[in-house]
Amino acid sequence: MKNVLEAKNVSMWFGGLQALNNVSITIKEHEIVGLIGPNGAGKTTLLNCITGFYKPLKGKVFYKGMEVTGLKPHKICKMGLTKTFQIIRAFKSLSVLDNVLIGALLRSSKMDEALSISREAIEKVGLRGKEEMTAGNLTPADQRSLELARALATKPDVLLLDEIAAGLNPVEVSGLVETLREINREGLTLIIVEHVMQAIMPIAKKIVVLHGGRKIAEGPPEEIKRNERVIEAYFGEE
């Protein structure tokens, strides 16, 4: 399979603090990759460097062979690469349908076309019947799904999900995992950031572990579970 996304030696500082230190990752098409690590490991920073919310101070990011380092997020999104946020950022005072419609308008300026893209995305994440509800009144789990639908409506090829299961109960998590599997089956490449290892292990084919801004391990879940450095990083902290 082809490489769809590649980050090479990415480094990032905030003030004097180094958030990422020479991190390189390679993502293949149609993969589900888990990006894990303890708090402050640099996971969100890495996502932001890839999707253009930060411009990495060193290193390069390639998407489908093109360099996208330092491009604005909206440009990168248009190329088919986008992310959801760690804290819920649904447009809270708009309806569910309008939220998703705003995403869909990227691919079609025609209202009726955009609407049908939106309905499809809403259906996919299981929010059917809630189209007219105001996003702010949804449960946190539904708001997460809404963000997912909104991102799907931009028709991405690669989707980066930042702690999408945060704050959800186990039933909601398993529902979400099922949705993600389904989306992946349709051809999307997923990079899922998780703080909790257990949530990601069942679906990810590959796990990348960050710790203190460095990549400390990479491989299939079973290997990662036995990796000494990973165990140390997790249990040394807690």
Binding site: C77, R89, F91, L94, L105, L106, M111
Partner: peptide
């Protein structure tokens, strides 16, 4: 129109708008 939806999106949340491909 699309323009109006984009305006409202920007009012609601600029970062989220960027992530949806809105310049």
């Amino acid at each position: 129109s699309k323009l109006g939806y984009y305006f409202i999106a920007i009012k609601e949340d600029e970062l989220a708008s960027e992530s949806l491909g809105i310049n």
